[in-house]
Write a protein that binds this DNA or RNA. Structure first.
Lengths: 143, 143
DNA sequence: TTAAAAGTCTACTAACTTGATAGAATTTAT
DNA sequence: ATAAATTCTATCAAGTTAGTAGACTTTTAA
């Protein structure tokens, strides 16, 4: 949920890139996300330096990074952690296996690295920009 | 954990394919898996018709399907459910999105289907047989 | 025929995660 | 000053996960 909501909110912010502020309440309403919950999510994104915000009247959130520089993989890692299925094959959240005798020759590891790369590649290639493009072309199709 | 343990146990059973029974206690000891926990896991695999068992002295578990016919995707689905990151893009565990206005034109869906396909392909191509081959070639390398 | 060795089944628990809510505090424009 | 906005911390209920416990059944070998 969190990750999905984050991506939806970020796509909105990407559509508004360098065009001012978007308010939490607005995004929440449009995407049907519980407002208070979205607050937390946006806050986490702020701490991760993906978005920034301005308080007070007329304030709100805005995207700091260029939409092409924010991938689904980035967002996934913030909210759901490792992309890898096993901690021992994770690049960003590595943890040693307790039950494994020799990590270097573990066949599971070798195969799970392939799986991780499969997922990681697609998730890294999918950015806010590519999501935005799909959104726009879908909107056009609908007309 | 469950999924990892299951795969480890299945690789052992695959190595013993059509060569008789392997006991829970044995596999548990070799793979450092809590025995009682492994019992549950093997039972689930039996209910999923991946393995079968024989009770009594000299009994144990054995693989029913050919190692090339059991993929990591199959096992993952038994223990962890959907491969897709969102239920609304899952093939085997589909559920409708509550917050989505129009599934047909949802840009998230379109992109997440690509991600699912990336993961699904690699996980479907990785079978007990391919894991076994890696195990064997690793054992050889070690000599 | 009986005891031991094996799997079967059901229930339970502690710790953690998730999705969400609540409310007080802070900042800013007018 | 005040209203509109974000910020921050705490809390909660429900669900999941990893693992444990124990009673039961089936099989076989002595």
């Amino acid at each position: 949920m969190k990750c999905k909501y984050a991506i939806k909110a970020l796509v909105r912010l990407a559509a508004n890139y360098e065009k001012g502020y978007l308010q939490t309440a607005d995004i929440a309403a449009k995407e049907h996300i519980p407002k208070k919950f979205l607050e937390q999510i946006l806050l986490e994104l702020k701490h991760s330096r993906i978005v920034n915000s301005k308080q007070g009247i007329g304030g709100g959130y805005y995207l700091i990074k260029h939409p092409s520089k924010v991938s689904v993989a980035d967002i996934y890692r913030i909210f759901d952690g490792a992309i890898a299925l096993l901690p021992c094959v994770s690049l960003n959240f590595y943890e040693k296996c307790e039950d494994c005798d020799d990590e270097k020759t573990c066949s599971l590891r070798i195969e799970f690295i392939k799986i991780r790369e499969g997922a990681r590649q697609v998730m890294s290639l999918t950015t806010l920009q590519s999501l935005l493009k799909t959104t726009e072309s879908q909107a056009k199709r609908k007309k």
